[in-house]
Design a protein around this nucleic acid. Structure first.
Lengths: 221, 221
DNA sequence: GATAAACTCAACTGTGTGTTGAGTATTCCC
DNA sequence: GGGAATACTCAACACACAGTTGAGTTTATC
């Protein structure tokens, strides 16, 4: 319960209460250490002691700045989540249904995975909890909602054939993309996304949404 | 290092060395307890103490039968892995490229996920290690190899258009299927797979492999 | 220069994994 | 049936990691 109180204090002003700077440096040092360690080993193998010794502080000092190890990675993830939202929105608002445009959108996603691989892998993991889980659901939800809207729009315009409910198809495409990108960057999360993968994803997403097989209805208009 | 020795003893005959039965009951009790607990909570929240008290033994007795908590779940997974291999092979050897046949194959996979959901989720997790990781790679590899062979065959027969390298496409389809099924059965891994998902997956896989968009080549023959 | 808020830590608690060392039961061979 | 090997069992450790306590020092503010 004492833990609760302390966490609430932290929540109140997103980490520390206020104040100019002295401890800001330490907070930054913790975040920097976390980011660095993440390139070497997965989240579950990073201990509070790693962060503590990396930042040159003691254990309780760490807990003064962050409520838990997870909270550090949540803080790290915040700006990345925003970037994902931007990609999602730009995909929705981009013009036509051309292959090039789809390819470009996927490249935007891939760039995020290249830049923040380890972090994105963490948040997509099945056993995420707390704020990490919320963040994931928000990210995936926004991506899926925009994909769904896109599919509906293109179906209404006769660009895409009917098929599964747009929401199901959209959610599936999002899962496919995020999973494929996470796989591509390897266990450490630092490999580059191979260009061939982008081509394959473009074809698969393109065919799934716009493609026809003999048993699909013919194009409208 | 003492741990090493004990583990090797275990490995030598897949668990215990031999002998008739007395301890076989305990081993079964541990496995049964593990399977039961898995329906309630995820692997990482199951402790050795849970298994120990569930099976009515002491801690060291547990370690006599299994080298670690992970080893228990590896043992549980063995037969499931075999079943996956069967599904993979039956998909490869099934006849034509009809939608019904694809749907039936996917239903076979889905049945496995319904029956062994929690276990399959564990093995597909990114942070699997040791034998669990090997098992996963073997399963996914076999599925992907068979999907690839299937795509090659159907392309050669003029049933499927050209497109991304068959191996890339096959691997992506496998990832899509396993991920979608894992998602569908929920966090606990015990929800039923909704029938609508099977339809959607059938369409997506069908279109990805056999479908055409205006920019894809026309059907051969 | 006193008061409060920001900051720091040595030493602790708690929970989990895996081990040690010393046994008891079972089997197998004579 | 006696004796040695093998199967099995456990109380009591050792250790790693998360998170806490309680008491202290610095820094900003009036």
């Amino acid at each position: 319960m004492a833990a609760m109180e302390q966490q609430e204090v932290h929540e109140r002003a997103g980490g520390r209460r206020r104040g100019p700077s002295k401890g800001d440096l330490r907070e930054q040092a913790i975040l920097r250490t976390a980011r660095g360690l993440l390139a070497d080993k997965p989240l579950e193998r990073i201990t509070v002691d790693d962060l503590v010794s990396g930042a040159g502080i003691s254990r309780p000092t760490f807990y003064f700045y962050f409520a838990s190890k997870q909270a550090v990675f949540e803080a790290l993830l915040d700006p990345v989540g925003d970037a994902i939202m931007d990609v999602a929105d730009s995909w929705l608002t981009s013009p036509g249904g051309s292959r090039e445009e789809l390819h470009a959108s996927l490249a935007g996603l891939a760039a995020l995975w290249s830049a923040h691989g380890p972090l994105l892998k963490v948040v997509l993991r099945e056993d995420a909890t707390g704020a990490l889980l919320e963040c994931r659901d928000r990210m995936l939800g926004r991506l899926a909602a925009n994909a769904t809207a896109r599919i509906d729009r293109d179906r209404a315009a006769g660009l895409a054939p009917d098929g599964p409910p747009a929401a199901d198809l959209g959610a599936l495409m999002v899962r496919l993309l995020t999973q494929a990108l996470s796989d591509a960057i390897g266990p450490s999360g630092t490999d580059p996304v191979p260009p061939g993968l982008l081509d394959t994803l473009t074809v698969v997403v393109g065919r799934s949404i716009y493609g026809r097989t003999p048993s699909d209805p013919a194009p409208a208009g």
